[in-house]
Design a protein around this nucleic acid. Structure first.
Lengths: 148, 148
DNA sequence: TTGACAAATAGTTTTAAATCCTATTTAGTA
DNA sequence: TACTAAATAGGATTTAAAACTATTTGTCAA
């Protein structure tokens, strides 16, 4: 089995575990949405995922996709990309990376800076269950910096 | 003049400068929205700001508040609080702090951890104009951690 | 100081994402 | 295999945000 397949398998096993822990059923729809999400390196919207999943499961409803994405977020199996939303963009927890977002054009730039992969949690919130730690920058991209 | 008033004055001067730099007019509505935003330590929605501003300026329209808030964000005079939005919550750049957000109940907890006040910008995005650097955590708050 | 003009606003309508609703189906398990 | 709580499909509803247009208002140059 290739490394990629192993990684994939691990994610599905992890997902299975999270669902059990939360008392959630393993429906085909849920699995399909999850697969669609981790199968892309983009930050898809609910519509994007809907379009994708329907190729294999033509009857799934948009509401189910929306509901499922929310559920994934609630159990920490996916996250919403920072930013002002509308539509929300989801992130299936691909490899470590951070985001820069342009305040003018809304473009999201992925980058990776290792020191940010695992920053420490301050004592003040140490008693919470922390599922995700994010470092995030905002400003103007090159184009928007220059076009005044 | 008190420290608080000085701080306020500085913010208004900074705001004035940002508007000039961006070629924006100093309208009473714009100033009122900005003042309402920096005058609170909450993270108000557009509706909250609207309600607040109308006390002094009863004819201002909700659209103007929305538009103005977006404008403030674009010039870096305000920011949208991380999270899944709807309604968006704005932040007038009060004193340094970070956010923890509960993935179940949506509660936002402010905390302050000095090392995060001024993290460094990686070279990869060094050529962008960085206006805001954010460290942000997600997970379950105490109540949601325990109630299964 | 005034006049011209681009920019901003009020008020309303429109849009679109997300959520809600209900009858039906299904996964988990006893 | 049958039961039950949970999940889904499909459509209706909600609601924040954006779009539209006539009118008003800062800003800057003369």
């Amino acid at each position: 089995m290739s490394e990629v397949q192993k990684n994939w398998n691990n994610k599905l096993i992890d997902f299975h575990g999270r669902c059990r822990a939360a008392g959630l059923k393993m429906t085909p729809q849920r699995v399909a949405v999850f697969k669609a999400l981790i199968g892309t390196d983009k930050h898809p919207t609910a519509e994007d995922v809907y379009r994708d999943v329907r190729l294999e499961m033509p009857n799934i409803s948009l509401d189910t996709v929306n509901r499922t994405l929310l559920t994934l977020v609630e159990i920490g199996a996916a996250f919403v990309v920072e930013g002002t939303g509308q539509p929300r963009r989801y992130d299936g927890g691909m490899d470590d990376h951070q985001h820069f977002r342009c305040l003018k054009c809304g473009k999201i730039v992925d980058f990776h800076y290792e020191p940010y992969d695992n920053i420490d949690v301050p004592a003040a919130i140490g008693h919470y269950t922390v599922l995700r730690k994010t470092v995030y920058f905002e400003g103007y991209c090159d184009a928007c910096t220059h076009d005044n």
